[in-house]
């Protein structure tokens, strides 16, 4: 890796440049700095949540070059030169993203802790598959755990954002 410097403490640190929500940020990180901690601690983008730090819960889901990843399983040095989108980059200046609007409208959130990760997974899905089936929606968020909603209204929100209704019968 280029641009490595050894500190007085004997630890090697690396200069990384990561494009986050359209802007490039250059920071010095340790080899073991997780992308989630880079985003939260270095850039104060705390919308990306830490839930388990083991890749189980999906609360820290961000888009790495458009693909959803658990940012607790990605090192900051791995993201060097890459493009990251976080929840803070989803809404535009002219208002919320359709997915965000539908989450609010359909009650697709309760405590809100899994919500940023859910929305990022949904964002990635709809970008490549604008009319997913309900099963595809459920598969796309199967890596995002929610403890509050039972997922029903989350699935409904994502389908609504794609202009579709639920297949699951619920009333």
């Amino acid at each position: 890796m280029q641009n490595a410097v050894k500190g007085k403490d004997g630890i090697t640190r690396y200069l990384v440049t990561i494009k986050v929500n359209g802007d490039e940020y250059t920071r010095i990180v340790k080899a073991n700095t997780l992308l989630v901690n880079f985003l939260r601690d270095e850039l104060d983008l705390t919308g990306t949540k830490r839930g388990c730090e083991l890749g189980d819960c999906g609360s820290c889901t961000v888009l790495l070059n458009g693909k959803p990843v658990d940012s607790c399983l990605v090192l900051a040095v791995e993201a060097d030169g890459q493009e990251v989108t976080t929840i803070e980059g989803v809404a535009g200046v002219d208002g919320l993203d359709k997915i965000q609007e539908e989450f609010i409208k359909n009650g697709g959130l309760q405590c809100g802790y899994c919500t940023p990760g859910m929305i990022m997974s949904a964002k990635a899905l709809l970008a490549k598959n604008p009319k997913p089936t309900e099963k595809e929606v459920r598969e796309a968020i199967a890596g995002n755990l929610c403890r509050c909603t039972g997922y029903v209204l989350i699935v409904k929100s994502i389908l609504a954002a794609s202009g579709q209704e639920m297949e699951t019968y619920y009333e």
């Binding site: 705390t46 929840i87 803070e88 919320l96 965000q100 989450f103 959130l109 929305i119």
Partner: peptide, 12 residues
Amino acid sequence: PKIDGPEKVTGA
């Protein structure tokens, strides 16, 4: 709609 919806869906 939930009063905290906008803050929660934007990560704010």
